[in-house]
Every structure is written in structure tokens, then in C-alpha cells.
Design a protein around this nucleic acid. Sequence first.
RNA 1: GUGGUCGUAGCUCAGCUGGUAGAGCACCGGGUUGUGGUCCCGGGGGUCGCGGGUUCAAGUCCCGUCGAUCACCCCA
Length: 445
Amino acid sequence: MSKPTPISGFPEWLPAQRMIEQNVVEKIRSTFELYGFAPLETRAVEPMDQLLRKGETSKEVYVLRRLQEDPAAGGGDDALGLHFDLTVPFARFVLENSGKLQFPFRRYQIQKVWRGERPQEGRYREFLQADIDVVDRDTLPFHYDTEMPLVIGDAFRSLPIPQATILVNNRKVCEGFYRGLGLEDPDQVLRTVDKLDKIGPEKVAALLVETAGATDAQARACLRLAEISTGDASFVDAVRALGVSNALLDEGLEELVRVVDAAAEHAPGLIRAELKIARGLDYYTGTVYETQLRGYERFGSICSGGRYENLASAGNERFPGVGISIGVSRMLGLLFGHGALSVSRSVPTCVVVALPHEDLRGRCDGIARALRSRRISTEVAPSAAKFGKQIRFAERRGIPYVWFPGAGGEPDTIKDIRSGEQVEADAATWTPPAGDLLPEVSGAR
RNA sequence: GUGGUCGUAGCUCAGCUGGUAGAGCACCGGGUUGUGGUCCCGGGGGUCGCGGGUUCAAGUCCCGUCGAUCACCCCA
């Protein structure tokens, strides 16, 4: 049998990286809970018609099929697919369980999702997302739109990663502006303007004239709007200066100001109003978020979301929501790729108990048990090799301490192999410095 | 899903116009007969991503495929 090879787009981390991931996820999770988001996990699969309810994303959905299956039965409305985000399954869950939930309902979900896209650095087919959403019945107060970035800001500040900037826009601003200009197809304009960074203003203007029925003047105005980017509420003056008036535009500006002002008060420097960002998903109706990491701008957003007015609705019931999702795998993949994250050791072990002789394994196991009973991660050396080798066993793994059972009635000793310092110790009482108890994750090298 | 670039030891790479694989680091052993990291000596390890083709002969040329990466699409 030949050597197995990776499957494109399905990353597998080494233990050291997995420890970083677990550490990062735990910090994100605790931040979410600090804000009162309740834990939720939904199944990995959804009926295809649920997944395809919004937008034409069908080509990226992985379909579930049994090996022994009647070919004629596949592909119906009841076919199953792996979820490609956590918002759509959540919307379904809310509709299904609305009678058992209290509203406004705020929950977090940290789960794998799957997309059949072509992988690249930081883009995978199987990846982890950490998502928060708030939904309410009929209407959802706007202040939740201002809260989302603050939660994310706190989560990111708890991690040893480069500075994150959340870019915010509001679809009402764009749509209102375009309509105020007299453009009939705001969605088409939005899609075109979204290409600004890739193809440049000249080509966008030409495309607007070509595909969205814009005049040269209208196209120029759209570009002027897209240029606006401010860290405070001054974007309003910049928009007003373009001389377009429209009720929806006014509403959008007012909302966007509230988001920016809230961040200015609680998390200065976290947010920029960036009027060119659009977001691909078509269920967003108001606020939209994207997030860049300093130094990693070219890799795009590692955390995005927005306001959706109609995603969770069935019959008379309607549950508008707002949410944002951290692309954990994407973020880690990028940082790993640039050597920007490290752990103090490659295993959880804090202490290796040296084994002087195989006959003493029982005594060494006892020492390990005593340490473990006080939550100190301990393993006993694999074999009674020379002490030099046993120390090297620990060193290779970054394990900071080696415990030496005392011979012939001598007291035990413990050696910090980083400093070489070795002192007497009692397994019933010895405790490592707080910083050595668990592996420490840090940024850069 | 479409197109481009790349793919030699665990890692970084060398291998000229085709002549059946090499270095540094890492790893293992010994010097140092039970306390590592330096130094010296020695050693193991490669179906040259995989499969097919051209050729007397392919790591080297051709085709396919898988993987990585980039652009498009889309997006975490």
C-alpha cells in the first residue's frame, strides 16, 4: 500500500497546532459566554432545500449519499447536504424550536462547516467557524448590530494575534444611494462595486455603464461613495457632500453611525466605516461586517457577518437576526503559515518522571498519580534509559520538568531542564509556577 | 468548477544539453559504563508525489493524475 496523501482542502494540524486551536477556541468560547450567548450545536446535515433556500450556492454544497443507494432516489428535495455555514442551520433551528426558546435568543455555535471551493492558503473545504447570532420575534432592536463587533473585539483582544480591524457598512446606505441616483438595479451595482479592489475604478465604472445601466456621472458617484472610509462618524458628511437624497439612505446612515459611535465609545480603533464592502451572501439586509488582520489584508476577511431581516421566516412567523462568524481555521491557517503563533511545548505534559529502573515503575507511577491529583499533567518515562536520554525525551517535547525519584532513601528531586536547576521536591506538595502548568500560546517567535 | 506555477531524505535545497541520487540541518549510536544542550567519530533513512509513455537508458522529455500555491468564481 502506498503512502497516504492529504486530501485537498481538508487540513489536519499537528498536536502543537491543535493545542493552539483548542486554546484559541476556548478563549473565543469564554468571551461569547461572558456576553451571555448560549451554547448550541446543530447537526452537520440539512435538507438540500433548506441549504439552498438563500442564494445560488448549490455548487459548493457537499451532498450526502449512501454507498448503497437507489440512484433514482437521490437529488430530491429531501436529499441531505453538509452545512456550509452556521447561520442557515441556526435559522432553521429557530423556526423548528421557536416554541421552546425565549426571545431575544442569543446563541453561539463553534462547528465545522464544508464548502466545495478550490482551496488556497487560508481557504479550505472543511473548516471551523465560531458564530454568534441574536434573533428576536418580528423585530430585532438595532442595538444588537452595535454589540456584535464589541464581542468580536473582546474575543480577538484575548488572543495573541495581530490587530484586527472590523470594516462595517450598511446595505441600506448603498441601496438608498444608488436608488437616489436613479439606478434601478442596486444589487447589480453592489456586485460590481465589490470588485473595486480587484479590477480598479476605471473598469468598475465601465462595468457599471455596461451592466447596470449607469451613466458616466452615476458611475462616478458610485465610485465616490465606495471611496469613503472613516474611523468615526465623519463618513456621513462625506456622503452628504455627494448630494444624493433618499429615505433609505438616511436610515442606513443613521444605523451605521450608531455602530461606529458605539465602537468609538467602548473599543476605540476597532472599527472603520468602509462604504465599499458589500458581502456576497444575499440574505443580508442592513449592517454588514468584515474583518482584516493587520499584515494579512490580502487574504481577505477572517470574520464576517451582518443583519438579516428575512432568513428565519415561515408563514406568519418572522425572526430577524444579526450575527457574525469567526473563520477559526482560516485565521489559524494564515498565522501558522507565517510562523506567527507558537506554543511553549508540543504536548500537555508538565513533568516527566524519570524511571531509574524498570522495577521502580510502580513507585514512579505513584509519583505521577500524586502530581496528577493536583492537576499537574505528568507522564512516566517510556523506559529505564540513561538519564541523559530521559532528559532529552522531555527536551524534545518542550516539557519543562524532569522528576528524579531519590535513590536509597534520598529525597526526590525535580529539575527544570531549561535552567538546569535541580531541587528537592515532595510529590505531595510540589507545584510548578503558574506559567508552566499548561502550555502557553504566544504570538510571533 | 476553469486556467497558471511548483512537487528530489523529517526540513531547506543541489543534481549541467537524459547515463540507474547528494549536501547542510534534524534523527540514531559511540566517545562520556545512569543527569541533556558544545565538540569529535560513526550510522540509518529517498517507490526522485503517483501512474503511464518516448528511449538502449528518465529525477531530467511527453501525457494523465494527486497535492501545494496563485488568479478567476466565491467566501471564513
